[in-house]
Amino acid sequence: MQMIKCPWCGPREEVEYHYGGQAHVAYPAEPAALSDEEWAHYLFFRDNTRGLFAERWVHTAGCRRWFNAVRDTVTYRFHATYRPDEPRPVTA
């Protein structure tokens, strides 16, 4: 089983975590100002990258905290994990 490194707890088995989709999608600053199309894009449209992808995970069976990861969607290998307030690290 794949080990995922929680930024707070360290490496734990994949089954302790849940997936949260694309990272760094900010809540709109002025939701009421969005057009229907912009709102649809915020709500339903996410990147579907083939390759390195920044995404959210939550350590459900551990500290229950959210964090971000850069993972390769082809090899499934994790290149980095980092706290939500940290910028996406530069990965190979």
């Binding site: 794949q2 997936y19 995404e55 969607t73 082809v74």
Partner: peptide, 13 residues
């Protein structure tokens, strides 16, 4: 499998 993937394989669990 819960995560996005293009690898044509999944997790054993």
């Amino acid at each position: 499998d819960a995560y996005n993937g293009y690898g044509q394989r999944g997790a054993f669990h």
